[in-house]
Design a protein around this nucleic acid. Sequence first.
DNA 1: GTATTACCTAGTAATTCTGTAGGTAAGAAT
DNA 2: ATTCTTACCTACAGAATTACTAGGTAATAC
Lengths: 136, 136
Amino acid sequence: MIVSTKGRYALRVMVHFAQRGGEDYIPLKEIAEQEGISQKYLESIMTTLSKGGFVDAVHGKGGGYRLNRSPEDYTVGSILKLTEGGLAAVSCTSQGAAACSRSECCQAKPMWDKLDKMIDDFFEGITIADLLKEAK
Amino acid sequence: MIVSTKGRYALRVMVHFAQRGGEDYIPLKEIAEQEGISQKYLESIMTTLSKGGFVDAVHGKGGGYRLNRSPEDYTVGSILKLTEGGLAAVSCTSQGAAACSRSECCQAKPMWDKLDKMIDDFFEGITIADLLKEAK
DNA sequence: GTATTACCTAGTAATTCTGTAGGTAAGAAT
DNA sequence: ATTCTTACCTACAGAATTACTAGGTAATAC
């Protein structure tokens, strides 16, 4: 599995924001209810998105979250990399992983590298605006 | 992570067989030692490959495993699908997974489907013979 | 029959995933 | 100033998966 619920929820929430449009801040509680995601779990995801600079957040009444760019300026890749902590298809190629002792002579390494690049290009080529267009 | 050690070990072993060539059966113990893989763990992988019809196996002295086709007739995809039990990038698209309640209206579904197809095409387009050529 | 090999069932330690629980801090309304 | 609403933070926990290990059984060669 390359994309867990965390990343998928993050995408759904971003699409949700984009779909509603507007400048208003939307409280987490409302999003959790409408998307059917556990409020507490969503909290951690929203904090990640906020810290990553993908959404603006304000406290207090009338507060909540909102996008700080237009939907076409968010690539799916950037969101997944933030929330999933990377997109490597095998541990060999993921950042921070202990370097494989066989990487020097590994016959599969070029294949993994190529796959990683392909997946990265794929996700970087899709934006939240593109996902919106898929809506019925 | 889309490919675990199980699948990666399986690939390594298949390349190992291809590299040695020949008609001789090679005992599991020997492969485990040379590849630095736990003998017991490799056992379960070899049994999978054997049951899947990817290798021939014979018991007793002089026995072991060997390929039953030429390296260019094994795609990486077929080996990974067997040992990993599929290659779906998200649970939404994997066989046997509980159908997502939102699949009807999921705006990301077409993206996941496209990704799955891309990954499948990628792995089905590479054979063990191709990996061998990468060798130094 | 004995040594050698593959095959089978079950368990287990470590890690990751998917959340929960409970509190703290910031800002708005009163 | 107090209260209400919201985001933010730390820590834990149950479930699932991964990566192995243990110990035996069956087939084949000698």
